[in-house]
Computed example of a mutant assay.
Amino acid sequence: MSFFPCPDPEAGDHAAVDQVEMLIIPRTSDIGGLEVRRALPTAKRRLVGPFIFFDRMGPALFRAGQGLDVRPHPHIGLSTVTYLFDGEMTHRDSLGTGMVIRPGDINLMTAGRGIVHSERTPENLRGKPFSLSGLQTWLALPESHENNDPSFLHAEAGNLPEFSEQGYSGRVVIGNWQGLKSPVAVPTDTLYVDLRIEPNSACPFQAGAEERAAYILSGALSVSGTRYETDQLLVFRPGDTLDLVTGDEPCHVMLFGGETMESPRHIWWNFVSSSKERIEQAKEEWRTGKFDIVPGDEEEFIPLPAS
């Protein structure tokens, strides 16, 4: 999804308490009728592991005749990860990919040296009301992969390992979790887990990943005795095993993180790179039409922002 212009999310008013290193309250914007909450990047926290961008999309209800239309736009130096809880989205890209993503599926589009894609509501949904809810995140690529050829991977929900323990259950989207391994391959150690915790229960969060965070999608969590609410991002202190504890209501949370990036990353619009010069080059390439087109979606595109 295209990077939208809005102020950085701000850290919450709570001081970092015990195992929670930082609390981030996302900022909200509207993209064509879809409310989006951006939690990363912020001025105080740019990445958690390879995650340099974290957007909560919806939940939103579209009326008949409405739909999401994110026109073709470019990316470099990152992988986009699209994961839905409700609704459908059609992905097309300059590799010739045409794919409908459904709840529980994962789309992993690796830009490398450059790719163009669009995201739209499938035509079969536009004639009736429908809902859309999900996440879109970006993974910064290690320097050794920043200029690789672009690629695309789609994994259906049924191919992702699921777990169910006393008090909690979920799906391993990327990485390893409690002995389960996702088939989705990425070039750095990455964790991405869809977790649901039952009322008055607890889920242990082991200290395996070098950097870890949790985004509360619904419900509330207590960590080290402090309660955190829906649409809050918790960044955890490295090295701790901690318990995610619920009260009288269930909680839906996305766990994520991974190894620390080996060098800083620059981000401008839809471009991520370890090199400012490469970003300037990508700007010129998009401005002058040197990126590839998206077959089946050639008529529109998002212009390069003025600043």
Rank of each mutant, 00 (worst) to 15 (best):
F4P: 14
A214G: 14
A155N: 07
F53T: 04
T42L: 09
F163M: 07
L68T: 05
S133L: 00
R63V: 02
E198A: 14
A202H: 14
S118A: 12
S222A: 15
T190V: 08
D194L: 00
S169L: 09
Y192N: 09
L108W: 09
T82M: 06
F62K: 04
Y168S: 01
G114S: 07
E156F: 08
R92V: 11
G175I: 10
V173Q: 08
L61F: 05
G65R: 13
E285I: 00
V36N: 05
W286H: 05
G127W: 02
Q178K: 15
S118E: 09
D297F: 12
G257D: 12
D69Y: 15
V172R: 04
S131K: 15
E210F: 11
P5K: 09
S169F: 14
W268R: 04
Q281A: 12
N270G: 09
Q281I: 08
A43I: 13
R237L: 06
D243T: 14
G175N: 13
N176A: 12
A202P: 09
S263Y: 10
W138D: 02
D13F: 15
P204V: 09
A207D: 01
P161V: 08
D18Y: 08
Y83E: 07
L153Y: 00
I267E: 05
F51G: 07
L180H: 03
T246K: 13
E300Y: 13
P122R: 07
E280Y: 08
V245G: 07
E298M: 15
E298L: 13
E298C: 13
F301G: 03
N200Y: 14
P50Q: 06
V173L: 10
L139I: 03
R237T: 14
G170P: 01
D189R: 15
G12H: 10
V48F: 04
